[in-house]
Amino acid sequence: MQLTINQAVYNINIEGQGQPVWLLLHGFMGSQHDFEQIKPYLTTTVITLDLLGHGKTKAPLTPSRLTFKQQTQDLAEILNTLHFSSVNICGYSMGGRLALGLAFSFPQFCRQLFLENCTAGIINSQKRKQRQQHDQFLAQKLRQEPLSAFIHYWEQLPLFQSQKTLSPAIQQQIYQQRIQQNPQGLAASLEGMGTGVMPNYWPQLEKFFLPVTLITGNLDTKFSQITQQMHQLFPHSQRFVVDQAGHNVHLEQPQVYSQILKEQQYAN
């Protein structure tokens, strides 16, 4: 289905019925199809969508429209328009950062929070500025180079080395999803919703009293450390480290990932 929110036409899919309702948020260069392997395990209502700058969602590609704040506001308005409240919000990487922002800005929509390999922001102002500059660099690459060249660059990042062990069929599916993206949308997303410009939520974590499930892969050393730090601050959190998985746990170990979600979905 399509839903127009603040001049953006969102591509949204809703499957299943019953409680709890799941909202699954994909990562950078992903789409609602990121969770195809996960949805069959979730036997209740599942909402997936293409975020701003991604997939088939259409929006004005202006810096003021594709901001972190605008995206979280859109998500809240989507849930309100669809008459969903108190949902399990689950996000991966960029989607995890947006899930965190949605839960803090609009807690009335959050039943509990599931965060897969994401950060709560950048505390140090100098490091935040450096990350903004790096995101600008990536955005320029997207605007100036063929998308295939950027995808090749992206695939070589240490964060995604564990995905090289996936079957050729799965790797081809990932590539096809990425090559169908709009590079202008991806660039605007990096500038508006990148890690460098997201709010710093670290000081607020200890004040978040809803249940939180943190998921990381044992091969992702960077985010294993970050999720451990978040786990120590959240008052009510559980952390799962999945073996033989890197940054994208739901892709690399879908059955284990789904089992975690199923076991935790009724937590209070």
Score class of each variant (00 low, 15 high):
residue 94 M to T: 14
residue 95 G to P: 05
residue 98 L to V: 14
residue 98 L to F: 12
residue 99 A to Y: 11
residue 99 A to K: 01
residue 101 G to K: 00
residue 103 A to V: 02
residue 104 F to L: 10
residue 104 F to W: 11
residue 106 F to H: 12
residue 106 F to S: 07
residue 107 P to N: 08
residue 107 P to D: 09
residue 108 Q to W: 00
residue 110 C to K: 06
residue 112 Q to N: 11
residue 115 L to S: 00
residue 116 E to Y: 02
residue 116 E to V: 03
residue 116 E to P: 04
residue 117 N to Q: 13
residue 118 C to Y: 00
residue 118 C to E: 00
residue 122 I to E: 15
residue 123 I to N: 15
residue 124 N to T: 11
residue 126 Q to N: 07
residue 128 R to K: 15
residue 130 Q to D: 14
residue 131 R to D: 07
residue 132 Q to R: 15
residue 132 Q to P: 06
residue 134 H to I: 10
residue 134 H to M: 09
residue 136 Q to M: 12
residue 136 Q to A: 11
residue 136 Q to I: 07
residue 144 Q to A: 13
residue 148 S to K: 04
residue 149 A to C: 01
residue 149 A to T: 02
residue 149 A to S: 07
residue 153 Y to F: 15
residue 155 E to L: 13
residue 156 Q to H: 14
residue 157 L to T: 14
residue 157 L to H: 15
residue 160 F to W: 14
residue 161 Q to R: 11
residue 161 Q to K: 12
residue 166 L to E: 03
residue 167 S to E: 10
residue 170 I to D: 15
residue 173 Q to P: 04
residue 176 Q to W: 00
residue 180 Q to W: 06
residue 184 Q to T: 10
residue 184 Q to V: 09
residue 187 A to D: 06
residue 188 A to D: 00
residue 189 S to V: 01
residue 190 L to A: 03
residue 190 L to V: 02
residue 192 G to E: 04
residue 193 M to A: 04
residue 194 G to S: 05
residue 195 T to C: 01
residue 196 G to E: 02
residue 198 M to L: 08
residue 198 M to V: 08
residue 206 E to K: 12
residue 207 K to P: 03
residue 207 K to Q: 11
residue 212 V to F: 11
residue 214 L to P: 05
residue 215 I to Y: 08
residue 217 G to Y: 03
residue 217 G to M: 10
residue 223 F to W: 08
residue 224 S to I: 00
residue 224 S to A: 07
residue 226 I to T: 11
residue 228 Q to N: 05
residue 228 Q to K: 05
